[in-house]
Amino acid sequence: MTDSYVTLDRRGDTAVVTIDNPPVNALHPDVADAIAAAAQKVEDDTSFRSMILTGRGRCFVAGGDIRYFTSIDRAGAARMALRVQAMQERLFSLRVPVIAVLNGHALGGGCELMLSCDIVIASSAATIGMTEVSLGLIPGAGGTQMLFTALPAGTAKRMLFTGDRISGTEAHELGLVDAVHEPEAVLDEALAVCDRINQAGPLAVEAAKRSANHRLRHSLDEGHRREVEIFSALFDTDDHREGITAFIDRRTPQYRRQ
C-alpha cells in the first residue's frame, strides 16, 4: 500500500508503516487519516502479526502542522484534535502489537503518537518532547493524559510545563521509551522484537494486548476479572491446543490463528 502520506510494506508477518510527509512529517489531520487507514489494513489482514510505525527522513513526527494551525479557529482545532485522537485510538486498540520506531525527532504530536503505540524503540539521535507550550498551546490529542501512564506525575508535568526536549537516552532512563539503538540499527532491532512476537501464538498475543490495555483504563479489580475472561476463552482455540501439544512433544508449534 502506498498513499500520499504513508507507505505500508510487508516484512514477513510484520507490517512496516512509514510516515512520509516531508520535510518533518508534520501531523496534518490528513496524515492522521492515512495512518488510520494503514492500521485498518493491518487489522483486516490477519496474516499480519505485528506492526511497526516509523518515519522517513530525520523526523518521526516533529509535531502538528503549524501552517494548518493558522487556517483554523476554535471549532476547527477541536475537529482536528478529534481526528488525530481517533487515529491514535485505532493504534491503541489494534488487533496486533504496534512498535513505534523513532527514526528521529518525536515532538508535540509526534510524542503523543508515540504514546499511543505499545512499545517504543528510539534512535540515539532522536529528541522527544511535549513542546506545545512554546506555541501557546497544550497537547490536544491526549498528551496531557497519556504522559501520566508513562512517567511519574512530577516528571510528566515538568515536560508539559516547560516544553523541554530530551534525548532518546534520557527518555530511556525515564522509562518513556523501551530501548535506544544507533540510528542505522533501530529498525532492525524493532524487526527482531517483531520476529519474537510473530513466533508466539497469534491469538494469545492479541488477547494479551486486549487484557493489558483494559488494565490501563480500568481498576485493578476490573482488570483481574477481564483477564480471567480472556484467559479462559483461549482454551476453546486450536492455537492453545497446538501450543500445549508442541510443548509436550518438544517441537516448534505451528500456529494457524484458530
Results as ranks from 00 to 15, higher is better:
Met1Leu: 06
Thr2Asp: 02
Val6Ser: 05
Leu8His: 04
Leu8Met: 13
Thr18Ile: 08
Pro23Ile: 13
Asn25Asp: 11
Ala32Pro: 06
Ala32Ile: 09
Ile35Phe: 01
Ala38His: 04
Thr46His: 09
Ser47Gly: 06
Phe48Gly: 00
Met51Ala: 06
Thr54Lys: 01
Val61Asp: 10
Gly64Arg: 11
Thr70Asp: 14
Arg74Ser: 10
Ala78Lys: 07
Met80Arg: 12
Glu89Pro: 00
Ser93Ile: 07
Leu94Gln: 04
Arg95Asp: 08
Val96Cys: 04
Ile99Ala: 04
Gly108Gln: 08
Cys117Phe: 05
Val120Asn: 05
Ser123Trp: 00
Thr127Gly: 01
Gly129Arg: 09
Pro139Gly: 15
Pro139Lys: 12
Gly142Cys: 11
Gly143Asn: 03
Thr149Glu: 13
Thr149Lys: 11
Gly163Asn: 07
Gly163Ala: 12
Thr169Ile: 05
Ala171Met: 03
Leu174Lys: 08
Asp178His: 15
Asn198Gly: 10
Ala200Pro: 01
Ala204Phe: 02
Ala212Arg: 13
Arg215Asn: 10
Leu216Phe: 06
His224Glu: 15
Arg225Cys: 12
Arg225Asp: 15
Glu227Asn: 13
Phe231Gln: 14
Phe231Thr: 14
His240Phe: 04
Arg241Leu: 12
Glu242Ala: 02
Ile244Tyr: 01
Thr245Val: 09
Thr245Ser: 13
